[in-house]
Design a protein around this nucleic acid. Structure first.
Lengths: 169, 169
DNA sequence: ACTCCGTTGTTAAAATTTGAACCACCTGCC
DNA sequence: GGCAGGTGGTTCAAATTTTAACAACGGAGT
């Protein structure tokens, strides 16, 4: 076995920055949402996704994929949101096993009231701290990172060992 | 109250990319470490920090700050690591209340064996996906983000409402 | 119609995280 | 010296996440 390709200084700097920024931003937003709206970040994201969906509804699995969470974890959170009256469950007509999560009017209302504070927090923690240039590069770079990990999760087939690809496409 | 400053398309793209990349990368690494070394990412980071520290030891609070975790969460994890023989506790000579977490030889050995696979995973998930330019901007941008959130957490005094600052300092 | 296999959500138990309450102990200041 | 106020770690209970079963179905091939 060969010597692993350790990270050089620039790479290490990027990795450390990514790790800590990630944790700190998450913690910050989690706290802001909990304080101002009584929601966890996950719950807030559920509402965002449902609100943006065609009929204010999405299948459980689809929602779990979008939130990058486990199915059972979603089941739990949807139950909490349902209990709070922000979401409701409805079984799928075409597939008896399927379940739709619907956002309720109260859910939309909650989102409307929580959004301003949340956006402001996102700006303070991340967006407004970055220069326009950094913003662009982060959108492109992390966008590509997400795309690959998502694809990879769906198709464990391709070896994905293509160094120079997609990126600039 | 004024209309909130919503995110424009570029900002939204950056935010969404950040959110999903963050979750996906975390999930990926968590799984890799668990599969290959039987450690959680948090535990791995504890070992990394201790291993890099002057005497292979750090105070609990200091460690908790670095890992961006709660004190009680760290207590739990250190107990697990201690049980696994990778870390040991030692009370602080100068402060009876204080506790040092020491990495053991076995802990260093574990780190040595887990590191190569972990670095490789970090490369595949994040580093090698980015262009050198993106890497640089991410290091700088997210570095600044971390710095601010950390400072803010330590000194809730400054209003921090200075739009054009630090960045290029 | 029927079997085999992959999917959909849920459930149960264990692991982890969070947050508040605590105790013991330092530190600056009278 | 002695006290008020803050620190450092732990503990406990409650909330959340993970993991591995599960039960009930769709769907394709025969």
């Amino acid at each position: 076995m060969t010597e692993p390709r350790w990270l050089d200084d620039d790479e290490k700097a990027a990795w450390i920055a990514f790790l800590s920024a990630t944790n700190l931003v998450n913690r910050k937003l989690e706290q802001q949402l909990k304080d101002d709206a009584g929601l966890s970040h996950t719950q807030y994201e559920v509402l965002v996704q449902l609100n943006a969906a065609p009929d204010g509804a999405l299948r459980m699995t689809e929602l779990a994929d979008r939130l990058v969470t486990s199915k059972s974890g979603l089941t739990y959170q949807i139950t909490q949101l349902e209990r709070a009256g922000l979401v409701s469950r409805r079984s799928c007509p075409s597939d008896v096993r399927g379940v739709f999560a619907d956002i309720t009017d109260q859910g939309r209302e909650m989102l409307r009231s929580a959004a301003p504070g949340h956006v402001e927090a996102v700006r303070q923690a991340l967006i407004d701290v970055l220069t326009p240039e950094q913003l662009t590069h982060i959108a492109a770079g992390l966008g590509e990172v997400s795309r690959r990990l998502r694809t990879e999760a769906r198709c464990p087939s391709q070896t994905a060992q293509d160094p120079q690809a997609a990126q600039g496409a």
